[in-house]
Amino acid sequence: MSQYLYIALMFVGIYGLLSQKNILKMIISLNIMELGLNLFIISTGYIKEAKAPIILFGNEGNYVDPLPQAIVLTAIVIGLGVTAVALMLARNIYKTYGTYEIDEIRGENDD
């Protein structure tokens, strides 16, 4: 059931991309989408009443599947990288066009 929640969160992010005209808001909605995706990845590995996959003393069975968690780690790092580049671009856009609104950006695509 919770997986549908996370997919809904993803679509909220995508809706954000679709409707927002402001560049910063688009970056935020990108992060929301990634957040929803990461939660979904975690949920795929969930097993009811299973413990976190950390082996402290001896390994008595019933662990949650550790693989999605490893994948989520990389996905988060990649999301971070992308957001960093996006912010760099947003700064440059502001420097060159003096605005964050997409509609007010002139003179780039109509050459």
Partner: peptide, 12 residues
């Protein structure tokens, strides 16, 4: 088109 929403609309 200039704005991204066009293409996202097509993807959806």
């Amino acid at each position: 088109a200039k704005s991204v929403s066009f293409s996202i609309f097509w993807i959806m």
